[in-house]
Simulated assay, not measured.
Amino acid sequence: MTEKNNKELSQEQSEGLLETLKVRFEKNMNRHEGLEWAKVQEKLNANPQKLWSLGEMERTGGEPDVVDYDIKNETYVFHDCSSESPKGRRSVCYDREALESRKKHKPENSAIDMATAMGIELLTEDQYRALQELGKFDTKTSSWVQTPPNIRELGGAIFCDCRYNTVFTYHNGAESYYAVRGFRGSLRV
């Protein structure tokens, strides 16, 4: 998606993205039973920067969709719902510190930096596990998730995947990166 006026989509881009999101929303009602697209679209129309972030999620292969509604804060929660870790966000280490610590063969970016630039957050481990209740995700890939500070301070980071119909959480050095590991994002609108 091309930027217009500081992270806003053009009218044409907005309309195209909203149509894509609507089709996905209607096709996957099991992810958001009881919610109505018209109300989601109303929120998106009122928040052009959030729509831009969803456009970035879509552009990088995340296939974002509504997975929850926070009644207390009156916000819709979108997660990347692509079957595998988004293609445009793979081969990244965990964060900037990890990226800078690599002496050779640095990846182009880090998961945290990319998410921040997109205006989204990495899923937490709990969010990742909840997403797995809605379908089969990451059966061939893996996704970095938010790492607790005590693990990160020791140089590690955590990631998850789903094998044998079971969600696994693993650890690795935060500076590691693999062609099949990316990250899934979350956005509240």
Rank of each mutant, 00 (worst) to 15 (best):
103 K>W: 00
29 M>A: 10
128 Y>Q: 09
72 K>T: 14
185 G>I: 08
168 F>D: 05
88 G>I: 01
10 S>I: 01
59 R>G: 01
149 P>G: 02
28 N>W: 04
5 N>Y: 04
45 N>G: 14
188 R>Q: 10
92 V>A: 14
98 A>M: 05
14 S>D: 06
74 E>M: 06
109 N>E: 12
162 C>S: 13
39 K>G: 02
65 D>Q: 14
186 S>I: 09
166 T>M: 13
156 G>H: 07
153 E>H: 07
98 A>H: 07
174 A>W: 07
96 R>G: 00
4 K>M: 08
128 Y>C: 09
15 E>D: 15
53 S>V: 05
22 K>L: 11
179 A>G: 14
148 P>W: 01
121 E>A: 12
175 E>G: 15
181 R>E: 06
14 S>I: 00
180 V>E: 08
37 W>P: 08
50 K>P: 02
46 A>K: 15
119 G>D: 10
177 Y>C: 13
10 S>N: 04
77 V>R: 10
58 E>F: 04
36 E>L: 14
102 R>N: 05
177 Y>G: 10
73 N>E: 13
47 N>T: 15
189 V>Q: 05
1 M>Y: 14
142 S>G: 14
56 E>I: 06
10 S>D: 04
168 F>S: 08
1 M>I: 06
62 G>L: 02
186 S>Q: 09
87 K>W: 12
38 A>P: 02
128 Y>W: 13
28 N>Y: 11
69 Y>M: 04
81 C>K: 09
178 Y>G: 08
4 K>Q: 13
